[in-house]
């Protein structure tokens, strides 16, 4: 009996667990796309691309935002709400910066005459894969915005750190996913 009890007390929160399963699911989508990339890169008419340098800046932005959200969790747990709010705000700003920088990266590629139409190449995949990744970041940014507004407007004091932790886990995930995609394009593309 004691053993059963202890096992149940150690159980992960259902929302956190749901997020981990969702992450597995999202990973499968990107696994599908990147394996399609590998298959296609061996066929005729494949064109490689030169990675725009602006993607390095966006990498820096998203890496930094992972740091700020981690600080946000710590300050939430220590009930330093002022620091928590500013760290959430910084994460949001960096997230938006990431998306803007991605836009400039796409624009740069477009100016290199890498278009949708015509023969296949790494560029078309890049638009799709980085675009889908950006959509996931935008989704996260919207959730961050809600969290930010709640921290300012909400009158109810929140003590459960679960929503913050779920948010942070997702945010780290899109960060790591970005690193994977970038490395993938540099090594294979």
């Amino acid at each position: 009996m004691e053993v059963v009890m202890n096992q149940q007390r150690k159980k992960i929160h259902p929302h956190k667990f749901t997020l981990w399963v969702a992450i597995a699911s999202i990973l499968m989508m990107f696994a599908g796309l990147t394996s399609a990339f590998i298959v296609k890169s061996n066929l005729t008419g494949w064109r490689n691309i030169k990675m725009p340098t602006v993607f390095w800046y966006s990498t820096a932005a998203i890496l930094l935002s992972s740091l700020t959200i981690q600080v946000a969790i710590r300050s939430f747990k220590q009930r330093e709400m002022k620091q928590y709010r500013s760290m959430i705000a910084w994460t949001l700003v960096l997230g938006v910066a990431f998306i803007v920088l991605q836009y400039f990266g796409f624009k740069n590629l477009w100016e290199q005459n890498i278009r949708f139409s015509g023969s296949a190449g790494a560029g078309q995949f890049l638009y799709v894969i980085f675009g889908l990744h950006a959509l996931h970041v935008i989704g996260g940014a919207i959730a961050l915005l809600v969290m930010f507004l709640k921290a300012y407007v909400g009158k109810v004091k929140l003590y459960s750190s679960v929503p913050v932790e779920v948010m942070a886990t997702y945010w780290h995930f899109v960060d790591i996913l970005w690193i994977y995609l970038l490395v993938f394009f540099i090594v294979i593309g």
């Binding site: 399963v21 499968m28 990107f30 599908g32 796309l33 399609a36 799709v128 889908l132």
Partner: peptide, 17 residues
């Protein structure tokens, strides 16, 4: 479902493009 439907989705996105 959770592991295979996303792969269909990626295939359909490419088809849509």
């Amino acid at each position: 479902g959770v592991l295979s439907f996303p792969v269909l989705l990626s295939g359909l996105i490419l088809l849509l493009f």
